[in-house]
């Protein structure tokens, strides 16, 4: 399914707009990176996309259906979110935690059905965390936790995946692994939007990069095009010298 935002506007206070009319499109099979300096409205935009923050202007469309008119449950069946931080004091095992992703598919009494267990098993295997299934979520490491949350998002069986700085607590090895998983999910048909601060590693794994500044889109296109010296200077106020070494990797020197 295609998720489209048209002229989305939002502000926490009436006189301080955070999003000033954002238009973008997320297509199945593509990973889109949402880049930009702190406080430019990336996370706010992400939360507007699944209407957990209600946009004050514009429209959010899922294959031409208005997302703002949908119930939270129905939205969760299509759009899954991996938040920046998850409370760690949740008294659930990994399996129970992933089971929460099935909530949107349950009937009134919340009976687990065989289908749920199959989905959970697949998600566990997909994220390679079958061995953690019986452990307590609160006792996992940061990297393991992030995988559990991604597995929970997969258990929603949606078609759009929104990731909010998913790798901010991960070391470089886990970051690479996480990006590879996300890449694979996109290949399987997910439309992925990933908010990130990482302008070095993440661009190697994305199809489209969007650079946001102060509630507006500055540039949109391939990572090479978007992460130009002028754009980096305009967005972050940092002078960079960029040299491309391989096909998709690039190096930058900051002055």
């Amino acid at each position: 399914m295609i998720l489209r935002a048209e002229g989305v506007r939002f502000g926490y206070h009436i006189d301080q707009p955070v999003l000033r009319g954002i238009t973008l499109e997320l297509c199945p099979g593509r990973v889109t990176a949402l880049l930009g300096p702190n406080g430019c409205g990336k996370s706010t935009l992400l939360r507007c996309l699944n209407t957990s923050l209600r946009p004050q202007g514009g429209r959010i469309l899922l294959d031409d259906r208005d997302v703002m008119a949908m119930a939270p449950r129905e939205i969760a069946r299509h759009i899954a979110v991996v938040p920046q931080d998850t409370p760690t004091d949740v008294p659930f095992t990994v399996r129970q935690m992933i089971m929460l992703g099935r909530y949107a598919h349950w009937d009134t009494w919340g009976q687990e059905i065989a289908d749920d267990r199959c989905v959970i098993q697949r998600c566990l295997e997909r994220m390679d965390i079958t061995s953690l299934a019986g452990r307590l979520f609160s006792e996992l490491s940061g990297g393991e936790r992030q995988r559990v949350i991604l597995a929970r998002a997969l258990a929603q069986q949606g078609t759009v995946l929104l990731l909010d700085e998913p790798t901010s607590h991960l070391d470089i090895a886990h970051q690479l692994e996480f990006y590879r998983m996300v890449r694979e999910l996109a290949t399987e048909g997910q439309a992925v939007l990933m908010v990130c601060h990482d302008i070095f590693v993440a661009p190697m794994f994305v199809d489209v990069a969007i650079l946001m500044v102060d509630g507006n889109l500055l540039s949109c296109g391939s990572a090479d095009k978007v992460l130009s010296e002028q754009n980096i200077a305009a967005a972050y106020g940092v002078r960079a010298q960029i040299s491309r070494t391989g096909e998709a990797s690039f190096q930058a020197q900051f002055k």
Partner: peptide
């Protein structure tokens, strides 16, 4: 229990 924001994302009103 997973937190107010996550609960909304997972489909709870």
């Amino acid at each position: 229990l997973a937190g107010q924001r996550s609960a909304r994302d997972l489909g709870v009103n």
